[in-house]
Write a protein that binds this DNA or RNA. Structure first.
Lengths: 106, 106
DNA sequence: TAAAGTACTTTGAAAAACAAAGTAAATGTA
DNA sequence: TACATTTACTTTGTTTTTCAAAGTACTTTA
């Protein structure tokens, strides 16, 4: 490992995306409105963060009509689950690691 | 609590700042070069991320000359330590929380 | 004393984040 | 049955952040 943050996934750096993934790890799916309410962010925000995760193939989108209204569901992909778990492991390692600097010559 | 990410600190959202704080939590101080090497990022990057943390008063900077060369040390403030620990607690809560959505009507 | 190295800082472009406005269909109101 | 409102998103454009390249001010080496 080159540096102490090399295994931290840039795609999950943002708290909104962290929140989205957390929700999708424990629920089979969540729809647009649910994510929006759980995370307390604006529509455009959910849209762009989900789009970013979708682009990485960490989540997938299913569009349908429920009660004649459009409904967008987000689901974590198998790949996304793996990547997120790896990210959490990397985070834990970073935080628990002894990063002891030799400052004796300073 | 309004939403599931409300206690996650925006200032620590970025992996570089997460790394800087992790280092400064367990070491009394770290200098510019050390941080740069530990994190594997460019000079300008370290500069801007430390500046951001400094602006929030989460770290402080001490400038001196060592062996006639300029040396910049970064230290976590008491406030910074508290905020970072709170952030970690919030992260842990988010990840361990049962965010179970009632999807029965969907 | 000229060239190279060290330790940063500044700058400007590129990317990301964000909220406001837009769209389109459904529903409520008079 | 029109018209306004709500729902469920998407699009747009501005602001903010990130980032690396270039710049500065020395110090060291040849």
């Amino acid at each position: 490992m080159k540096n102490i943050i090399s295994n931290i996934n840039k795609a999950f750096d943002h708290r909104v995306r962290l929140g989205i993934m957390s929700v999708l790890m424990v629920n089979e799916y969540a729809d647009f409105k649910t994510l929006k309410e759980l995370l307390g962010v604006t529509d455009g925000n959910i849209a762009s963060h989900t789009k970013a995760l979708e682009k990485q193939k960490y989540i997938k989108v299913e569009k349908s009509f429920i009660d004649r209204k459009p409904n967008t569901r987000y689901l974590a992909t198998q790949n996304g689950r793996k990547a997120f778990q790896a990210h959490l492991d990397a985070l834990e390692k970073l935080l628990n690691k002894d990063i002891n600097i030799d400052n004796t010559d300073k």
